[in-house]
Nucleic acid binder design. Structure first.
Lengths: 147, 147
DNA sequence: ACACTATTTATAAATATTACAATGTAAGAA
DNA sequence: TTCTTACATTGTAATATTTATAAATAGTGT
């Protein structure tokens, strides 16, 4: 279960010399257990019960720490809030333009494209980002009902 | 030259029933001629000379109009300013993590990935976004000099 | 136990973008 | 042409996300 994954994550943190505070544990737990890709504010709000006087800054700080260690990826969306994704296996995201839902889907990894880009542009390639946009089944059926 | 492309873009706008104001013409011209992918603020600043009392809001408004017509794509980067890219041929971007430079590079288009995502998730796929991150030749040579 | 460092908190600040009301401008009808 | 109406622009205020900072707190090692 997610127990295992939390412990793995904590080990990773310890190995990087990051202290495990109660707040960090809770944020990590929330990230791993929630199947959504929460925003910083969603995490903050969902932990208000357990930590009535936790600060939003703490959430942001620790998400940055997790990012630096490589446990978490930030998905940026312009003016809107970033969403945070606990990195486990290699996967991409498909995003519903109707309701904003984000669904994971697996794909081999676009190594070819990286290689080509590298040779064409002379860059040293580090990583890439890919997202697919569309309409999820729920939103599609809602649309057809209306029309 | 870019003359042609500007006229094509203006035709597209006219066909969509969008008025061609001096400001719109200038923003469009700047987008097409500049090989960079400017931010709204960069466009605003670069047109201050010609239009001393143009408002930033005008730039944002018209970029939205251009986006709706499909002439322009917005590249969002979290908290940082969005950049705007005049859509011409199908291409992707490689972005330098050192200096922020964005370089275009052409690639066949990831139709396969879209198809797979569609069948796996049940979404109706509309479009996708892909970006590659790395270090550009300039930044790489700067780094080696220092070390 | 003590000194030192990392972390959290609370608040203020920075920044990008949007909303809104007022003014200006262009296109069509009379 | 002149009136009317709809669209554009301007200027400013508001919103929202994220970061910076300083003070308070907790944890670690000697």
């Amino acid at each position: 279960m997610s127990e295992v994954r939390i412990n793995e994550a904590i080990d990773t943190l310890k190995q990087s010399g990051v202290r495990i505070t109660p707040q960090r544990h809770a944020i990590l737990e929330h990230l791993i257990q929630s199947m959504t890709h929460p925003t910083a504010d969603e995490i903050y709000k969902s932990l208000e019960g357990k930590f009535p006087n936790m600060s939003v800054a703490t959430v942001y700080n620790n998400l940055r720490v997790f990012k630096e260690v490589g446990l978490v990826k930030e998905l940026t969306y312009g003016d809107a809030s970033s969403r945070f994704d606990c990195v486990t296996t290699e996967h991409y995201h498909i995003i519903c333009e109707g309701c904003g839902k984000i669904v994971d889907f697996h794909y081999p990894g676009l190594d070819e494209v990286e290689a080509l880009a590298e040779s064409v542009t002379g860059f040293d390639v580090g990583h890439h980002r890919m997202e697919i946009y569309g309409t999820c089944p729920d939103c599609r059926s809602n649309k057809t009902k209306i029309s």
